[in-house]
Design a protein around this nucleic acid. Structure first.
Lengths: 295, 295
DNA sequence: TAGATTATGCTCAACATGAGCATAAAGGTC
DNA sequence: GACCTTTATGCTCATGTTGAGCATAATCTA
């Protein structure tokens, strides 16, 4: 069985991060590596274009997963090589789902997300209490506090995968819960694919801090508030408006188009565009966004 | 053909970063994923222990590579899932090689390394001049300057892979040079494995900036200068001594053992140990080392 | 006793970051 | 038209971080 190539296609539409899915949201685009594929990435591009009609822009490899072996099962294992791809949504395309539909607790800009974390904290505290030893309980509590930013530790938006794995272990998601047991809100996916999505979210949240990838998700021209809302949507965290502008300005990665946004409510906002020419012409770092890492 | 698991084992010995190799330095430990392996990582551990007798400590996945397909060749492709493993050398173990034997230009703490970069700069300028169009020449020059930190741009120690790939394209390494053509100093490896090593070096250099992985490479107790030399060896860059100590101190990741180093030359240095208990007990970030990213 | 060598404490300027005050420019309401 | 709401934009201030270097301490060797 050849390794499978699997893609997490991300776009942001109406300030909501979206992921491209198949089969009613249960699957991600994927297909086996074939002999004719020039490279892993070209194989991935071919499969995604074939299955969704969507061409890929910025693509990067995420992680390679293997299924657990099955006793008495086939000798061969399913190996998945996963990729993150950034793009823009196009009108009328089907299959896009909000990524917070799968991970509602990851949206800390919304009051519902924050309330859900409070509820999760209580459930996980119960789970910690069910550890066999006192030391085990303490270790679990510490891990919960760290992963969900409790006890004043501060929410770390990059711990998407760690949070999902913790909820999996605590049997609070359908993938691991016993049949009929109560589970948290949030869509699940087939096989291990929700884990792949979590990996992609974590990687993207980490990456926007030090590479200008956010502009892969923006239209040609945009206002600073639109840019901020996009970053906030991806990071799942609100930001300080004036400081956001200050940092974006000093990066010198965007320039004014000279026009102002048409449909605005308050004072009209100037439109900006990304200076494509700085890619490559510039030190690769230098796009740090005002997303403070928590203490 | 099942995917292959391949390991880059790193240790630091006498302030030199070392990599564990087989076959006279031409190969890295590796073996195919088998049906009995519980996971990719356990498969890797089994292969490495079988081939080298060395048990693995901290392990993380690096990247998955695929061979280019061969026209008329077999239908199946070699897929390599690579891992970075950190450990300590043990007396009398064979097969350890200095990683700067493979990448002499990556050691910017040594005058030879800096001189080599000067020479490479000239060779790559020639190569840039051989681009077909004027725009192509300019693009090549810009890429060379950025990758090797010329024109006052500053050396970025994390661009190990980009530098190797540039030298590969310019046919300055044996892997790509025509037979008999002059090539740069530095050992090469079989197949694509020097690229895997470059990927590991880049990842480790990036990682020591924000995770306390450097302590995986240290003995139980060490002086601050020893720690600094280890970081410098890995990063290939010298550091400011007082500032290094200030940062390490404020991380609060190490504590005094109460003893002083026995074999010292000047004023005796206090010995420190890593506070293992902070792993997990602490925000996962917070080990930033005084390795400034260049401008 | 005078270097040589390494350890260690401390200061200073420049810059980055988090928070918030103040003002500007639009539309809508009375 | 006066006034409110809304968003945009400029600016300040305290605090923290970083890069550089001065100064002193504690050991050994010539």
């Amino acid at each position: 069985m050849p390794p499978e190539l699997i893609a997490v296609l991300i776009a942001v539409s109406d300030d909501r991060p979206m992921v491209l899915t198949l089969e009613g949201g249960r699957l991600l685009p994927s297909g086996p590596l074939e002999a004719g594929h020039r490279s892993l990435q070209t194989g991935l591009r071919l499969w995604v274009e074939h299955q969704t009609g969507h061409a890929l822009g910025h693509v990067e490899q995420l992680y390679t997963f293997a299924d657990a072996p099955v006793d008495g099962g086939p000798d061969e294992r399913r190996v998945m090589i996963s990729y993150l791809a950034l793009t823009r949504t196009r009108r009328g395309e089907r299959g896009w789902r909000g990524w917070y539909d799968y991970f509602p607790w990851e949206d800390q800009t919304a009051p519902e997300g924050r309330a859900l974390v409070q509820r999760i904290a209580r459930l996980l505290d119960d789970w910690a209490g069910r550890a066999p030893s006192a030391a085990g309980q303490e270790a679990r509590r510490q891990r919960v506090a760290l992963t969900f930013g409790l006890d004043g530790l501060g929410w770390d938006d990059e711990l998407v995968l760690q949070r999902y794995e913790l909820l999996w272990e605590a049997a609070l998601v359908p993938e691991s819960a016993p049949p009929g047991a109560p589970v948290l809100p949030g869509l699940s996916m087939a096989r291990d694919e929700r884990r792949v999505l979590a990996t992609a979210m974590a990687r993207l949240r980490a990456k926007i801090r030090y590479r200008p990838v956010i502009y892969e998700l923006m239209p040609d021209s945009f206002t600073l508030l639109h840019l901020q809302r996009t970053v906030e949507a991806v990071a799942g965290q609100p930001m300080h408006k004036q400081n956001f502008r200050r940092l974006v300005a000093q990066q010198d990665l965007i320039e004014e188009t000279g026009e102002v946004a048409p449909d605005t409510r308050g004072r009209p906002a100037r439109l900006f565009r990304f200076r494509r020419e700085v890619i490559g012409a510039r030190r690769i770092a230098g796009s740090k966004l005002p997303l403070a890492r928590p203490i």
